[in-house]
Write a protein that binds this DNA or RNA. Structure first.
Length: 499
DNA sequence: GCGATCAGCT
DNA sequence: CACAGCTGATCGC
């Protein structure tokens, strides 16, 4: 059979579901709303090979515990496959985790959901938006905005889009802004960036949140989520959750970011990339080498040939060399790296190591960075702003603001050299040499935009798809625009041709 | 007054 | 362009 791609134009529409569950195991939404299958087909795809029995009728997998929750079936896949891996901090102290109920380990008193504990209609999801697919003139999707006619829509009125649901399971990924999602009893968080955890507040009460241990620490620390909802999972360790084998893999994105691998009891395997940068090391992972992926949820942030950028290592070398050059010319130069809450750590860590200077940043970021538990990073963090390396919010990396910032450090520095690491500024100079990057200078402030991306480039996406050979692909980014969806689907088709 | 969310902006 | 937010205004309590 030819590879099916989400969005195939000549796909046949499905028969209407006979009851309140569609043939992928998702409850059909309230009247007027769309089911997973409806939305999937509407986006133009053949869904026929993904039939799965409804989740609430399936037999639990053998590893599932009596309470219908979670049990650990293998302590580590690396262990199981005889691959050497250094022990992680949590794993080292939690050896007994393997045998114990994870509910107990996480301090959960009772399972969140028994079979009948379906989300009540109207509990958190009110009547559906008239335009659920939200094609909004190229703007990023907004949630819960007032619709055109009449009174402002109730909050949380936007339903969870199908591409955040995992068919045949009661799972969603990065779907926290829709209140209680019908049929969902386990909410996965791929990584701690706002556009993925948005909607998670201290009042969260819709079900357990599964994520990596590092992400779990951030959720607890910064969002004040009741810790009984937070379920940290070790990387490369298979868990059985609601009868589905789940494994988190390093996503090579920001600290704590994970790919999520699902193996259903009927043998279907799905991979959700969250946000990721495809890398060679992923090709070595046992779970991605063995067997085919039936369905791939793909981070398509840069799924366009105009996005080309070098390996992160090359960019880091460029940044370090540039910093050294400026310091030689002017020893009283302040080096600034712009960054969001988490991500880009390796850029300033490399500068810190090469120049042998500590990393200064404000107290809130220091707290976040220390929470990673990375000794090489922690030991270089300083609370003294006399260091010549500062990490600032990206919003501050502008000429006027850096000029003001320099003045607050009265005379300690005479110039500022700042870096904005991002993927998309490089689209213009695509294919060019790093050394051709021209900084923007104004007075004593020099700013370099550098193509340091934590998402896959277009070519890396191509390599990844050819390696994974998914039967179907669901893009998860830039899906608001139909023309763009079609373009991406054409790329997928081309990459997978003949595989 | 307070926390959550929104439009606008980068 | 569109990353992953940030700022200031507004909403609901």
């Amino acid at each position: 059979m030819a590879t099916d791609i989400a969005g195939d134009a000549e796909a046949n529409p499905p028969l209407p579901a006979p009851d309140d569950l569609d043939d992928n195991g998702f409850p059909t939404a309230a009247a007027g709303a769309s089911s997973f299958a409806d939305d999937f087909y509407r986006s133009g795809s053949d869904w026929s090979s993904l039939q799965a029995s409804p989740w609430h009728q399936r037999e639990p997998a053998s590893g599932m515990n009596a309470k219908g929750g979670v049990s650990l079936v293998q302590s580590s896949l690396f262990q199981a496959w005889g691959i050497d891996k250094p022990p992680r901090e949590e794993a080292a102290q939690g050896g007994s985790l393997v045998q114990r109920s994870l509910f107990q380990a996480w301090g959960i008193k009772k399972p969140f959901r028994e079979e009948e504990a379906q989300v009540r209609a109207g509990a958190g999801v009110s009547s559906p938006s008239p335009s659920p697919s939200g094609a909004r003139s190229g703007r990023k999707r907004r949630w819960g905005g007032a619709e055109e006619n009449g009174a402002p829509a109730a909050r949380k009125s936007i339903v969870c889009p199908f591409y955040k649901k995992i068919p045949g399971t009661p799972f969603t990924v990065d779907a926290f802004r829709y209140g209680a999602v019908e049929g969902c009893s386990a909410y996965f968080l791929s990584h701690f960036h706002y556009d993925h955890y948005g909607g998670l507040t201290k009042n969260w009460c819709h079900g357990p949140i599964y994520c990596t241990a590092l992400t779990a620490r951030l959720v607890k620390m910064l969002l004040s989520i009741n810790s009984e909802y937070i379920c940290p999972l070790e990387l490369d360790t298979e868990y059985v959750i609601e009868g589905v084998a789940v494994t988190l893999l390093d996503a090579n994105h920001c600290p704590g970011a994970a790919l999520i691998h699902f193996r259903l009891s009927d043998g279907k395997t799905y991979l959700h990339t969250g946000d990721f940068r495809a890398s060679k090391s992923m090709h070595l992972h046992p779970l991605l080498q063995s067997g085919r992926i039936n369905l791939l949820y793909l981070d398509t942030t840069y799924c366009n040939p105009k996005y080309k950028f070098p390996p992160q290592e090359d960019v880091i070398n460029f940044v370090v060399r540039t910093a050294q050059r400026y310091l030689k010319k002017q020893p009283k130069t302040l080096i600034v790296v712009g960054a969001y809450s988490i991500g880009k750590e390796n850029v300033y860590l490399a500068i810190s190591q090469a120049l042998e200077v500590p990393i200064y940043t404000d107290a809130s970021r220091r707290r976040i960075l220390h929470s990673f538990g990375w000794p090489d990073l922690s030991k270089r963090i300083s609370s003294c702003n006399q260091s010549s390396l500062h990490v600032l919010p990206l919003a501050l990396v502008q000429h006027e603001k850096l000029k003001n910032y320099l003045e607050t450090l009265n005379q300690r520095f005479l110039a500022v050299l700042a870096f904005r690491p991002t993927g998309w500024t490089f689209s213009e100079t695509a294919g060019k040499e790093l050394d051709l990057i021209k900084p923007s200078s104004r007075g004593r402030v020099t700013i370099y935009g550098v193509p340091y991306s934590e998402h896959s480039s277009f070519t890396e996406l191509g390599y990844f798809l050819k390696f994974v050979r998914p039967q179907k692909v669901i893009p998860t980014v830039n899906v608001g625009d139909a023309a763009n969806r079609d373009k991406m689907q054409a790329y997928f088709r081309e990459w997978l041709k003949g595989l």
